[in-house]
Design a protein around this nucleic acid. Structure first.
Lengths: 249, 249
DNA sequence: ATGTTTTTATTTGTCTGACATTTAAAAGTC
DNA sequence: GACTTTTAAATGTCAGACAAATAAAAACAT
């Protein structure tokens, strides 16, 4: 584990990269303790604050955890699905909000991926998952529900659909696609009629899952994508002719 | 932007979280300059090193970039697809290597997601994409190719397939699923006959894309998944009866 | 001998103050 | 006006110190 003294990059960046590589290629294994900050400082021939900056970079990526005290130190962290999931949602959300991705592009990606889950989800459906889907559908039928809460329930419904595939890798990969759309959806105003159509499609999908019919669930998702797109188009047309660019909140 | 003095968490973690939230909910916009380190230190009532640790945490997530000099400082960074892509590959790779995910689970997720791209990719196919796919197929036919290079070419082939969907969000979401499998694939030894079967399926898929037949491409992927799984199963059976647990490298 | 308390050593967390380096703008010079 | 020099502001780095947490070791009491 060494750093290049001629490199122009920050020392802390070089050090964190060096340790990161060691973790990735297995030189440092899960729960292994790194040398203390002072030892690292000696090893890399830098000061302790510089080492600390490097370690904080790694901590920000959940690659290490630190513990104070006599037997404390920095330990290689087992990256959990939970941590990765949260990172994925944040990254995807920022990616969409910072890069002028069209609603259509994001929507297409999301539904393409969800349809990929449908057959597995239908095949492995379980009572919990179906109960969640039904509960969210019921919630979505309540007329007093705010648009924002309606969107949140929509996300919960789709998450249940995805998690039903009982494949944690799949759930993780889809986390971003499903949740990052929420801010975009929040820009839409759902009329009672809009909601009714969406709820009907949700029912159709839940029924298909219930019957173990993946193809039918996939068809339902396709219809839902079309519905969502047309709703969004209506909103953006109105916005572009009547008012300044959309502002979230 | 404030922090809780009663919290037990690290000050630098609190500060980075506070700034991160400000970025996510739009209080800080892309390319906006943050206050200088000294000003932030005054604002949060901490020392400059603590502020710096917080900023390094953000830099590690590509949320800010820093610039030295008179008009320098920390700026909110536009998260690029490229950056997000790299993050996604690293995270997915570590997730698989640290969590005893079965080959089958990872494989299932990967091919399910790839099949989701097939129809779009077939519909929007272009000369570049097809040329890449054909070139990788040719490379895979060279007998002197090492197993590792064969796997790398395999990844390149699949990336071309995914990128053919011409949806950057989709490409980003699939980056992890496709590339994180490579270390797992590298544990497999491909006989000449194995390679021939895989190349044949790659041809079948490329032809289907060429013809704009998404369903056929999807079928090809399904066959390839089955082939890959049976290969892997063969390897793991041999390993478990004849030798100690697999060790990469 | 055993259980409890105290001490001690180690490690991370934080602060202060300083200097080096980079960079763009301002001031000076021809 | 064009070029050079100076200056100021910002990040990057360092050194040394103290605070706080924590577990092990030592001391003590029973």
């Amino acid at each position: 584990m060494k750093i290049d003294p001629k490199s122009s990059a920050d020392l802390s960046a070089q050090i964190s990269q060096s340790i990161k590589s060691a973790i990735i290629n297995g030189d440092l294994i899960v729960d292994q303790r790194l040398p203390s900050e002072s030892e690292l400082a000696d090893h890399f021939e830098v000061s302790r604050p510089t080492v600390r900056e490097a370690l904080k970079r790694l901590a920000a990526q959940s690659l290490i955890r630190t513990q104070r005290g006599a037997t404390g130190g920095a330990f290689v962290n087992r990256l959990s699905f939970e941590d990765a999931y949260a990172q994925q949602v944040t990254t995807s959300t920022l990616l969409l909000s910072m890069n002028e991705v069209s609603f259509q592009t994001a929507c297409e990606a999301r539904y393409a991926l969800e349809r990929a889950c449908a057959p597995l989800s239908a095949q492995r459906r379980n009572a919990d998952q179906l109960a969640t889907m039904r509960a969210e559908i019921f919630r979505q039928g309540q007329p007093e529900l705010s648009d924002e809460a309606f969107c949140a329930s929509d996300v919960a419904f789709h998450r249940a659909l995805v998690d039903g595939a009982a494949n944690p890798v799949l759930s993780y990969q889809l986390a971003g696609a499903v949740e990052a759309m929420q801010p975009l959806m929040n820009m839409i105003t759902f009329s009672a009629r809009d909601r009714a159509r969406i709820v009907a499609l949700h029912c159709q999908i839940a029924d298909a899952i219930d019957l173990g019919d993946g193809a039918a669930a996939s068809d339902g998702l396709q219809a839902l994508e079309k519905e969502t797109l047309s709703l969004a188009q209506k909103v953006f047309e109105t916005r572009s002719t009547k008012s300044p660019p959309p502002q979230a909140g």
